[in-house]
């Protein structure tokens, strides 16, 4: 299990890094899907099968397909790739990388002070749904309203 966790983690980190340096947008998208699937595996390892399934279906499935549709609609061809290359100069990367490195160092520094073992316990659909439709029912309603608003505004914005 531990091995599976570290393996999936490595895949997630590498594929995510590949996403942000890719110039071909479709390749980047596929790397992103890979990364999300790796995270789904991690979820499973951590004892959250429901979240893992949703990650795979909604994130890696629905949302990424949406991206793909838009990329196809925009019809970003060869010239965008050349454009991407011209934008990818070294100095663009310096400041964000340094800052991200500092941020990561700080996070690691803070997190390493926790010294607690985590023993995955399986928390299945039953517990999650009991919470969702129990104390969090209002949050569910709000989320549905948010989705409705997203639907309406996306329709309105993308309209000709």
């Amino acid at each position: 299990m531990m091995l599976l966790f570290y393996l999936a983690a490595a895949i997630a980190v590498i594929s995510t890094a590949a996403v942000i340096v890719q110039t071909n947008i479709v390749h980047a998208l596929i790397y992103l899907i890979l990364s999300l699937l790796a995270v789904a595996v991690i979820f499973y390892v951590l004892g959250a099968p429901f979240a893992a399934l949703l990650e795979a279906i909604v994130y890696a499935g629905a949302i990424m397909v949406l991206f793909l549709f838009v990329i196809m609609m925009l019809n970003l061809g060869q010239h965008t790739r050349d454009e991407e290359r011209s934008w990818m100069t070294m100095q663009v990367w310096i400041a964000p990388s340094i800052m991200a490195a500092i941020l990561l160092a700080q996070l690691v520094n803070v997190l390493s002070q926790y010294d607690q073992e985590l023993t995955p316990v399986r928390v299945g659909v039953l517990e999650v749904s009991a919470l969702l439709f129990g104390p969090y029912v209002l949050a569910v309603e709000l989320a549905s309203i948010l989705l409705l608003a997203g639907l309406v505004s996306a329709y309105h914005l993308a309209k000709k």
Binding site: A9, I42, L46, L111, Y114, E117, P120
Partner: peptide
């Protein structure tokens, strides 16, 4: 087996 919690969080931080 158990996994150290900070490893999971550090992974989240890296991503």
């Amino acid at each position: 087996e158990s996994i150290p919690i900070e490893h999971g969080l550090i992974l989240a931080g890296i991503l």
